[in-house]
Structure formats: C-alpha cells, structure tokens
C-alpha cells in the first residue's frame, strides 16, 4: 500500500501529507486537468478554425476598405465568391505561379510563393497583399491593399499579433488604421519601381505627419507613443517588406503584365 489505511466508522482515513498520497494527488489532478483541456480543445477545434479563417478573410476586406471588424461572416464569404479572386504569386518574378493552385499552396513547402487577393469588381479594382513583420513580442501578420494605380495605399489591417494591449496593439485600432486610408503613396515618382524610387510609408516618432511638408505627407503617418519597436516593425513592413516581396508584382501589374 502507498499509504497506511486506518478505518474510522467504515471510511478510510488518509494522511494527506504522506508521500504516497501527494504523488497520487498530483497524478490524478494533472490527468484530470489535461483531459479537460484536451477534450475542450478537440470538441471546439472546428469552430475555432472556422473563426480564425473568417477573421483572416475579413481583414482582407478591412484592408481594402470593403468591410469593418464587425462585418458578418456571411457577407465576408459573399465577397470572395465573385469579386475577390485569390492568386498564387511567385514573389521573385512577380508573376502568377503556373503550376501551383491556391488549394495546393502550403506556406511551409512553397516559401517563394504567397497567396494574394485581387478585387476585380468594376471601379474597385485593387490588390490585397499579405504582409508580415517583427513586432515587440512576435510576428505581426496582416494585409496591405494597394489601389489600381499600383502606387496608393488603400489600407493596412493586422489580423494576428501579440503586441501589448493599449500600446503596440493599437495597430489594430480604427484611429491607427485610418492613417493609412489618407491618400498614402509608396513611390516617389509614379511608374518607377526601382529600389531607389520605392519610398513606402514610414511611422514617425516625436513629430506629426501633418508637420511634414505637404508633398512629403503621403509617405508618413503618426506613430504610437510607447510602442516604438512595434512602429519600427510596421515601418519595415510598409517599406522594405513591400518592396522586396511585391515590387516586381506591382511593376508588372502597372505595365499590364498579369
């Protein structure tokens, strides 16, 4: 026996401080807790996955300005039936992948490819590009929508990040995202997609975008106080990342090569 059993009125009296009982208690408690969590996770996984997927697609709409964070799931699906097409892009050439379909695409197996969205609805044409960058605590993933002139930014929406609430996490707040809807541009001179001409959008620290000269304001937005590292990550996304991954694509698109 692991612990001594004394009987008192027919019931065993257990010494809760004996080693045997301690081990037994720890084992039972751990098994119970893990069963509970595993059970909850298994039974709720489908629902959770669906929520995550819808949320990701919703952020595509938010970036392009077609929806808000409260757009119902059904409306989100509607958009992706007709108006928004998915495309597998080979980032090095900026062209659509020939022998890879969106269903087969797996980010782990195909690091040189990425899934982008193009809206083909009349007068609302734009491309919505997945972006990722380094925040303070981890990766930030989101979408940037670029207008039909392949130069102006329509919006930026992050759907996955672990930044500090109230500071870095403000990147998903309406006031911050609104900054990117205010006629921002990525090229110094329209039509030239060389690295030197690719300016992107920079988040400012200590100065306001509205204090910059008028012709410069298209390339700057206000940063977030107390979230310098998060802002640096967003700047990186809106400058280097955009150029390296989508410079060729935007250039091709501008010249009519699809």
């Amino acid at each position: 026996m692991l612990w001594k059993v004394k009987l008192k009125g027919g019931w065993p009296v257990v010494d809760v401080n004996s080693n045997g009982y301690t081990f037994g208690f720890a084992f039972v408690a751990c098994v119970l807790a893990s069963l509970l969590l595993a059970g909850a996770n298994l039974s709720l996984k489908d629902l959770q996955d669906r929520n995550v997927k819808t949320d990701k697609l919703r952020s595509v709409l938010v970036a392009a300005g077609f929806g808000t964070s409260t757009t119902p799931a059904q409306e989100v699906e509607e958009w992706f039936k007709e108006d928004i097409k998915v495309k597998v892009l080979e980032t090095s050439t900026g062209l659509a992948a020939k022998d890879l379909s969106a269903d087969e695409y797996d980010p782990k197996k195909h690091p040189n490819y990425t899934l982008i969205y193009e809206c083909i609805k009349a007068d609302q044409e734009c491309s919505i590009l997945p972006v990722e960058g380094k925040g303070l605590w981890g990766k930030m993933r989101g979408y940037v929508a670029v207008g039909n002139d392949n130069n102006s930014i329509l919006g930026l929406c992050f759907y996955d990040h672990i930044e500090t609430p109230g500071l870095g996490a403000e990147i998903t707040e309406p006031w911050f995202m609104e900054n990117f809807k205010d006629n921002k541009k990525i090229l110094k001179v329209e039509g030239d997609y060389s690295e030197a001409n690719f300016k992107g959008v920079t988040l400012l620290k200590g100065v306001k975008a509205s204090d910059k000269p008028k012709e410069q304001q298209a390339y700057y937005v206000d940063g977030i106080s107390g979230a310098t590292l998060t802002c640096n990550g967003v700047t990186e996304v809106m400058t280097t990342f955009l150029y390296e991954n989508y410079g060729k694509y935007l250039s091709n698109r501008q010249r009519g090569i699809k």
Partner: peptide
Amino acid sequence: IPGKIRIITYMLVISTLVALADQILKA
C-alpha cells in the same frame, strides 16, 4: 490538497480555468 504541493495545485487549477475559458471564448 497535500500541503507540500499546494502552491502548484493552485497554479494547476487557475491555469486550467483560464485556458478553458479562453478555448470557449475562441470558439
């Protein structure tokens, strides 16, 4: 609760509760 492992038992109960609530909210 055995006295020797009571603190770790609190941790177990608290973290299970919180993780469970998080799962339900996510779904």
